[in-house]
């Protein structure tokens, strides 16, 4: 990738690690709360600054390759953790989020990216940014929902009641579903302009539809009299479908016919 991505990634990860350490210490020494938050947030701000810088030297939004979208996840996922702590007073989610963000950065460090300025004509569209950003934020929320659900499952297995956790995973899934719906429709409207038809059952579209259906199913099951603690399993697993949609599609036999052949990495 570029010269100093390694530095930025390491600085961000160090920020998150120190932030985590200080947060844990802050349970005993409340005075550490603020420096802990500043450090954790700092990690995301470094990533955000890097994205802005990278955008300016690329002359195009860094949203094209999977590696580039991972930069955004790394910057945004911890923010969800902070938001959840702020709104629902749930502290633990942010640790998972920072760990997940660090994981994304590590993938990028292990697979240095192409320095490629080109953007194929179909991607040069005003729809490009809203479509991808909406999906990105949606995935971030659903990742957080899935992690929360997993944590709920873990608590259930240890027989601890946890209503608040269940409502957090639910609302994250709900907001994520809203963004998936927007992403899907924006994608369809864009496809009409770029490729002539709004829906062609292209493998990428099919998988996006499948992940949308998974969450649609969840929302209706939640509405119906289904044991909500069992649905935590469902939520935790739905994310697998999203993961396939997100980077698994490239490896499926059906991918050969896809128009969405973005560079892999």
């Amino acid at each position: 990738m570029i010269v100093n991505f390694t530095t930025v990634a390491i600085v961000a990860m160090v920020c998150w690690a120190l932030g985590t350490l200080l947060s844990i210490l802050a349970r005993r020494t409340p005075a550490l709360k603020i420096p802990a938050f500043v450090l954790s947030l700092g990690g995301s701000l470094f990533m955000a600054a890097f994205i802005a810088f990278y955008w300016s030297i690329l002359d195009r939004p860094p949203l094209r390759t999977l590696g580039e979208t991972r930069l955004w996840y790394a910057a945004l996922i911890p923010l969800v953790g902070f938001l959840v702590e702020y709104r629902w007073k749930i502290e633990w989610l942010k640790y998972y989020c920072m760990a997940l963000a660090a994981f994304f950065l590590c993938i990028n460090l292990l697979h240095p990216e192409v320095f490629d300025k080109t953007l194929m004509p179909a991607l040069q569209s005003p729809w490009f940014i809203p479509h991808v950003i909406v999906y990105l934020v949606g995935y971030v929320l659903l990742a957080a929902s899935s992690v929360t659900a997993l944590h709920n499952v873990y608590l259930q297995l240890r027989h601890k009641g946890n209503d608040n956790g269940e409502s957090v995973s639910h609302y994250l899934a709900l907001l994520g579903f809203v963004l998936l719906s927007f992403g899907l429709i924006f994608g369809a409207l864009w496809a009409k302009e770029a490729w002539g038809h709004y829906w062609t059952w292209d493998p990428k579209e099919t998988w996006a539809f499948l992940s949308w259906l998974a969450y649609l199913g969840y929302l209706h099951a939640w509405r119906y009299k289904i044991d909500r603690s069992k649905l935590q399993w469902y939520l935790a697993l739905s994310f697998v479908v999203l993961l396939v949609c997100w980077f698994g599609v490239n490896y499926l036999p059906s991918a050969a016919n896809s128009v969405h052949t973005y560079s892999q990495s």
Partner: peptide, 8 residues
Amino acid sequence: SLIGGVVP
């Protein structure tokens, strides 16, 4: 759809 998403 899963069939359509896996089988070419």
